[in-house]
Design a binder for these strands. Structure first.
Lengths: 218, 218
DNA sequence: GATTTGGTCGGGCAAATTTCCCGACCTGCA
DNA sequence: TGCAGGTCGGGAAATTTGCCCGACCAAATC
């Protein structure tokens, strides 16, 4: 890729699976005359493609898309370009999700309940290479940090942890179901839930998580 | 479970998915008047159940059953009873399979090409707590041991190793396909092949294998 | 009490994946 | 020249996943 003539202003890629929301925010953002929305995407894969072809200054992304693939998209983009600036624009603000987003490589986190001005300010911050988050997110995180929370596992219930442990140990779902006297279906459901809650996409990632959290060894 | 009056002779559980083969060998074994075939099973799950309820002295098992679940069955049984004696009775005698069987906890390995006498002798050895293998198996293993083979990965081709590495790293099949310029289908096929060749049943087990072999870390 | 909240357990069902098997194409080697 | 083996992918049936929903139960809150 050759060097590109740098157009002043901030180029933005909008990622959200809800077209209406996307359009609405596109309007808001384009009111700022140093903002240019250069592309949109409605899922993780398209987001990655769009990022590659447009190299936007900032990616504004909703991470609650089908497939829980938002975190994944962040990881993908950052894997390709460690300098990518990604601002998560989410419905929710659970501490776990915020942490997951930042550890996936996001530079900022703003909830959809925030004032447009907050989003705009956050975009500018992120574009400058800073980190940013809306007030409500900051509050939640601050609160969380007072209560010593140790890991991504805090968001998991007891049963979920047990199942994750066994999964990581290499047991099949049938074995786990037998061990815990559950139906295979229930184990499948837990497996799904665990992936959703932790934002992990593959079983291999789950194993790594379990090992990092001391749930498993090797 | 209460202690059982020990009936002299060797009680045997036969596991093979092919009924005809099972019947045939049942005949052969019952010709020995100190052998009693106390149960049969046609798959891994039934083998485990039968083992639990009959506690046979020796399990004679074909490991090439649908689901590649033979090794798995061995692990299950040994997990429940570390003293279980399992004699693998296989069609093939690739060194890799033999090693996999022993490391899963088998006590012996006889090929289906062996003379009945060899099988019978092996059963007696195994029942005594010794290890046993038919001559052809011993030859293959001996040969193998001359060529310094280091790990379960030797049975994998270059491509398979690369794909295993990426799988263990946590990449999705789509990502791997993209990275290597393959179709997703091909990656799926490799994934399947890798599991079949290594005898691993879950992705978590694959990750452990990869880590043990230095293909991945964490 | 009554009710909300949250963890546990599983059914349902479309969509995706897995599991095998097969054929095609290369490359090296006998 | 032919055969063995690695690479790549299609096909089809069986199974699993992804996501949603309802039921039960226990503790917390009103």
């Amino acid at each position: 890729m050759t060097t590109m003539p740098k157009i002043p202003g901030i180029s933005i890629l909008l990622v959200d699976d809800h077209p209406v929301v996307r359009q609405g925010y596109r309007r808001v953002l384009e009111h700022q005359d140093d903002f240019r929305v250069v592309a949109e995407a409605d899922n993780a894969a398209n987001a990655y493609r769009a990022f590659k072809s447009h190299q936007p200054d900032v990616v504004v992304m909703d991470i609650s898309m089908p497939g829980a693939s938002g975190l994944e998209a962040i990881r993908n983009i950052r894997a390709r370009d460690a300098d990518a600036r990604i601002l998560v624009f989410s419905m929710h603000s659970e501490a776990a999700q915020v942490k997951a987003a930042f550890s996936a490589g996001a530079s900022g986190f703003v909830t959809k309940g925030s004032e447009p001005a907050e989003l705009i300010a956050a975009i500018r911050s992120v574009a400058r290479g800073e980190h940013a988050m809306s007030d409500d997110v900051a509050r939640v995180l601050a609160l969380e940090s007072l209560v010593p929370t140790q890991s991504a596992l805090d968001q998991l219930g007891e049963r979920e942890i047990e199942i994750l442990r066994q999964l990581a140990a290499g047991h099949t779902k049938e074995q786990i179901a037998a061990n815990l006297n559950l139906s295979t279906k229930t184990v499948q459901n837990y497996h799904y839930l665990i992936k959703a809650k932790t934002g992990m996409r593959t079983d291999a990632q789950l194993v790594r998580l379990a090992v990092e959290c001391g749930l498993a060894n090797l």
